[in-house]
Design a protein around this nucleic acid. Structure first.
Lengths: 342, 342
DNA sequence: CTGAAAGCGCTTACAG
DNA sequence: CTGAAAGCGCTTACAG
């Protein structure tokens, strides 16, 4: 394969200066139609492709957007990454992806690496709260889903969405509910819990009392399974009638625990998630959950990043309740149960 | 934030020439210890970080590896991407990820985009056979898992691994088996099928006859579910006693179909997958499957890419059988069933 | 071993 | 509107 043609080659072929070639390339400035045609002819004749690196060096700008996620094997982040890539593409940008494995140091070094190659901007889904503080960067940075440092955040309105789940469960008649929370060192974990708990509290004050238990875990399957197993390994009358989880993965873990304990979902137990990963619609029974609008989130994040000047305001997007087979009315009134105590 | 310091600043601060700075940066050539120290002092005093773009322009080399996968939301590819990122990192390289959404044109344009930014090399998991043919590139390209063009392939030995499943099922006593194949326009799809079928054939010739049905689909959940539903919506005596799928996702879809049809797995039906995605260990029952050694595959691919000269030989890595709860002996001998016909 | 200089391939004031 | 020239920040022969 011979050396790639450069602007110089194109200029010679077209009989113009390199400046002119560059100008038709940029498309911005006015160039006489005849010259423009000649240049375009030369470009296709030679199969010229601009050298992105040289351009980047000269302008200290690239069309690459850096994305750091905590864990690409987490289906929600994978979906988010796919959406960001699509959104970036729509704006003529490429995506550089890094996975921090929930490690703050790795996250930091990925951000630095992006900075070093003067990306156009960086979107980060923070590994945990407090990461990315005191960071100064020459390019815009946007937090997505989980706040990174003090950078503007685009996220689902976790609290509003969690309240939707509370409404749903209370509305079905559940009065003994367990909430499996996410890590409290993440904004998402806290907001979801707070939205859920305060909505339940509100019901407790204005209507029937609700018994609410809260357990804390990570956002993954294992955590949900383990916590649910603990919660459900009690005599039926002491068990919650509904388990609301802070993530689909936890909820799916809970579903598995329920199955292992031969507790029928949704007849003996309702289970709800959060995220609406594609799997939520495939487990048995299908999972009632909150849909996070990944495409919208991604588009907004990319939009803020590319705005001139870059957006500085947080953006919240409402989540929506997706009711499927894993939630239903509680089995029977508490009163009945007393007689069965052993 | 003030302008980033350059080699020039470092040189001035240290009282040496930029050439010397560059030389201590590269570490290769010999530099007098005293000067080296001065330069290193200047570097940390100024907080100097090399400009990756300038270096790339000068050397037409970068430390970025491009990875194209068909669909990042596919758990297996997500895992593969995570492994490739880790392997790249271990070699001091960064990863640029693109998802082709199983679209050949998108795949092509992603590869071109990588080429344009003179990445160190490209790893591609092809969207389908025949993509990437006749491509000439200035940097090494390696196919991973699914062959891209005629570039060297690192993959699991699909045929060997699929034969392991055949051994397992036959060994359990299954004599009526359905195989849900993957797309035949992928090497993986074909190899898995061929490995499975030829092993079954071998048993058929040397031992008891096996009734084998084959259905074709995509590698995803929906495909598996739909096909299994068709397969299993027959009177029990006409149903296969085992369904082997070409992917975990298909198998998980099949599990769902079985559940919907109230067919007990594994007592009435065995189901097996391929890939060992993390979900395989979380579905109910846990899925018997083939583990593809993602880390090993990734490391080999990166290794071939970075070798001088780049590797030209295919590499196969054996998969291993993971037996879990979704497979077991068939329910009862066929003879019993005749009486139940209606 | 070290410095001065050329050059990677672009873009963009600066003249005209 | 167009060309000639400078310069982005590096690396690397080339002398010495």
């Amino acid at each position: 394969m011979s050396k790639m043609p450069t602007v110089k080659d194109v200029a010679e072929y077209a009989g113009v200066s390199v400046g002119t070639v560059s100008r038709v390339l940029s498309g911005e400035t006015a160039v006489k139609p005849m010259l423009r045609e000649k240049v375009n002819g030369a470009i296709s004749a030679l199969g010229y492709r601009p050298n992105v690196t040289a351009r980047a060096l000269r302008t200290s700008r690239t069309d690459v957007i850096g994305l750091v996620v905590p864990d690409i094997t987490n289906p929600f982040f994978a979906q988010l990454a796919a959406s960001v890539e699509r959104a970036a593409l729509e704006c003529g940008h490429s995506l550089m992806l890094a996975s921090s494995h929930n490690d703050r140091a790795a996250e930091q070094s990925h951000v630095s690496a992006f900075l070093d190659r003067s990306v156009r901007g960086i979107i980060v889904v923070a590994s945990s709260d407090g990461s990315g503080l005191h960071l100064e960067a020459a390019v815009p940075i946007i937090s997505l889903d989980r706040r990174f440092g003090t950078f503007p955040l685009v996220s689902t309105n976790h609290a509003q969405a969690a309240a939707l789940i509370a409404d749903h469960l209370y509305g079905l008649g559940h009065r003994h509910i367990a909430y499996i929370a996410g890590p409290l060192d993440t904004e998402a974990g806290r907001m979801r819990q707070e939205g859920f708990v305060s909505q339940i509290d509100r019901f407790g004050r204005t209507g029937e009392r609700v018994e609410l238990e809260i357990a804390y875990g990570r956002f993954d399957y294992e955590s949900g399974e383990r916590i649910a197993r603990d919660l459900l390994s009690r005599p039926p009358q002491d068990r919650p009638t509904a388990v609301a989880a802070a993530s689909d993965q936890q909820a799916i873990g809970a579903l598995r625990a329920a199955r292992d304990l031969k507790i029928d979902v949704p007849r003996k137990l309702s289970v709800t998630g959060f995220d609406d990963i594609s799997l939520a619609n495939l487990v048995v029974p299908r999972l009632t959950t909150i849909r996070q609008p990944a495409d919208t989130l991604a588009r907004r994040a990319v939009g803020l990043l590319l705005e001139e000047p870059p957006g500085r305001e947080d953006e919240m997007v409402d989540g929506s309740l997706i009711v499927r087979g894993s939630s239903g009315p509680p089995a029977q009134p508490k009163a009945d149960i007393a007689g069965h105590r052993n």
